[in-house]
Amino acid sequence: MSLLVTRRRRRPELPLVPLIDVLVMLVLFAYVTMQARTAASLNITLPKAETAGKNAFKGSITIGIDAQGRLAFNGREVADNQLLDVLRQVKNIDREIPVLIRADETAQLKKATFVMDVCRKAGLHKFSLLVRE
């Protein structure tokens, strides 16, 4: 008499918890290491001036001009024809707010002059050109 031993076969399992842990770590790693590219990160190299003082303004707005002539208002890219409307809205809130113009050292003088002219048209007369020491 032979004994037949019948063993039940175990159902295959997929360990989900370790897989989810690995997936979460990959997503976290991707989020931490990615570079957020926004208009605020216009690649601007300020011109150098030996007589430059500290450029500490509180409560100011910043207009950036990169080497290609693109404009950024407080870090958001704006078109040339939108700048006047944006500055008029700012003037309605605070007409004494200083405007800081951050122009790349290779930007055309024509573009910086355009920004200064638009500031005057909007009624904002306190503007400065930001430089580095």
Rank of each mutant, 00 (worst) to 15 (best):
L46E: 00
L130C: 06
L46R: 01
L130F: 06
T33G: 09
D117P: 02
G75F: 06
T106A: 14
L100C: 08
Q108G: 14
C119R: 08
R7D: 07
I101D: 08
A30D: 15
V17K: 12
A107G: 04
I63V: 15
S60W: 01
I93P: 11
K48N: 04
I20N: 10
P98M: 06
L84S: 02
A49E: 04
V99A: 01
D66T: 09
D66V: 02
R76L: 05
Q82H: 00
A79F: 07
G123W: 06
S60M: 10
E96V: 07
R76A: 10
L83R: 05
L14E: 02
L71D: 03
L87K: 06
L3W: 07
R88E: 15
E133T: 01
L109C: 07
D94T: 00
P47S: 11
L23W: 09
R8Y: 12
I20D: 06
M25E: 07
D104P: 00
E13K: 11
M1N: 08
A79M: 00
K126Y: 11
A49Y: 10
A39G: 14
A52R: 04
T113L: 14
V99W: 05
R76W: 07
A72I: 01
L83A: 06
M116P: 05
K58R: 14
T33D: 03
L130S: 03
V24R: 04
K111Q: 15
L84F: 08
E50Y: 03
L3I: 08
L130V: 13
G123C: 05
L84Y: 00
Q82V: 02
Q35L: 14
R37S: 12
L87V: 05
L26C: 12
L84G: 03
E13D: 04
N74F: 11
I63G: 07
Q108D: 11
A52Y: 03
L14Y: 00
A39Y: 07
V5T: 13
E50S: 14
M1Q: 11
V17G: 02
F127A: 01
V86G: 06
T106K: 15
K110E: 15
E13V: 14
L14G: 03
A40V: 03
T33V: 14
R37F: 13
L87F: 02
E96M: 04
M1Y: 09
T62M: 09
L28K: 03
A107W: 09
Q89C: 04
C119D: 04
R76I: 07
L16S: 03
M25L: 14
R10L: 13
R9I: 13
Q82R: 00
G69A: 09
